[in-house]
Design a protein around this nucleic acid. Structure first.
Lengths: 188, 188
DNA sequence: GTTGAAAAAGATAAGTCTATCTGTTATAGT
DNA sequence: ACTATAACAGATAGACTTATCTTTTTCAAC
């Protein structure tokens, strides 16, 4: 495995065990087994390292999204919203710590400002468009896409966290169950 | 104003401007205008200081909740769920940065473990009871209370953040609008 | 095998932070 | 006025960090 990836994995490890604020070049280097100064061969600085990890996770979510279909007006809107929720859900199942990592880094960098549009990039364009279209057609309530996205994120990540904590099995609540919570909330 | 409160206010300031991880005794002392060592006259250590701020916010939310009514079986369940959501909503309106502060500190301490039941204390007992009762009566879908609470939190804090960012006025979405998003999602 | 570049380690300056300890000033009670 | 205590400031040890600069090692090309 490439050293840069090893470093990124080490960052994820530390985020999950100690939190994003605890990530330091010293700890990362120790975990990978390289000297601290060499971290700077692969990343400009600490923030750059964190951002790289963040964007890797975002890419993984977005790789599950079929943006073409999401913008395809011939597909019913409910189906498209469902597709979006499903991709977040699938990501959370395959990568249970992924949403935590995203949240952690976002929180760490959030205040500081890490550029306007670095966030969910494409999703932050496509989903609002979808929501607006649906609202115009009076299929869903008028609402900001950010609220919908936050709901989806909250439901899915709380569920996966409960599973991780062993509060119930991962099959206790199906995707349909979780989707219903969101969809019936927003539909008109 | 009591010095301890001044310190807690300074902590909130720093959390809002730089994030919880950036809170240090040095910065806090500078903000209040006391010497750094004196912070330790009011708090056992840094974590104690953060926890104190956290619990102050929680108390402020809980002071809005009528726990007696919330557990009163003679009141319809929808009304009681609504009461709960309303108290979080009212808190967010009166104290727009309150939810951010809670989230920030939770994130910071979250990984480390700051005791099992320190969280929303009473709310973390009463709301799950309410949800279970409602589910048993087949009024709402069976679901963990944590998911409901996360939804409520997500909707309300995203809305207030959008308002703070100036994306729309605080009256754009009424309490009823936001409540509908949650209630219609969970009801059977 | 020599050379030159890339990859790594080492050393270090400069900064921040926590927590404690030691003094000093203010203040209340007597 | 005196004293005990609370409130405060100052100093400092010890840990950690970041980012840079210097030196060593590795290794491929010639």
């Amino acid at each position: 495995m490439k050293k840069q990836e090893q470093i990124e994995d080490a960052v994820v490890d530390i985020i999950l065990s100690e939190g994003a604020f605890a990530v330091s070049t010293v700890k990362v280097a120790k975990k990978v087994g390289i000297s601290q100064s060499n971290v700077y061969l692969y990343f400009k600085n600490r923030d750059d390292m964190l951002m790289s990890v963040y964007q890797r996770q975002i890419k993984r979510i977005q790789s599950r999204v079929d943006f073409k279909q999401l913008g395809d007006v011939s597909i019913p809107i409910e189906t498209r919203v469902k597709m979006y929720v499903r991709s977040v859900y699938d990501f959370s199942k395959e990568n249970p710590q992924g949403l935590t990592v995203i949240q952690q880094i976002k929180f760490l960098m959030g205040q500081v400002d890490f550029g306007p549009a670095i966030d969910f990039v494409k999703l932050n364009e496509v989903v609002p468009k979808l929501i607006k279209e649906a609202a115009r057609q009076r299929l869903i309530k008028p609402m900001p896409a950010s609220v919908l996205m936050a709901m989806v994120f909250a439901v899915i990540s709380t569920n996966i966290n409960n599973v991780k904590k062993g509060e119930y099995s991962k099959d206790q609540y199906s995707f349909e169950d979780l989707f219903a919570l969101v969809w019936e909330g927003i539909k008109l």
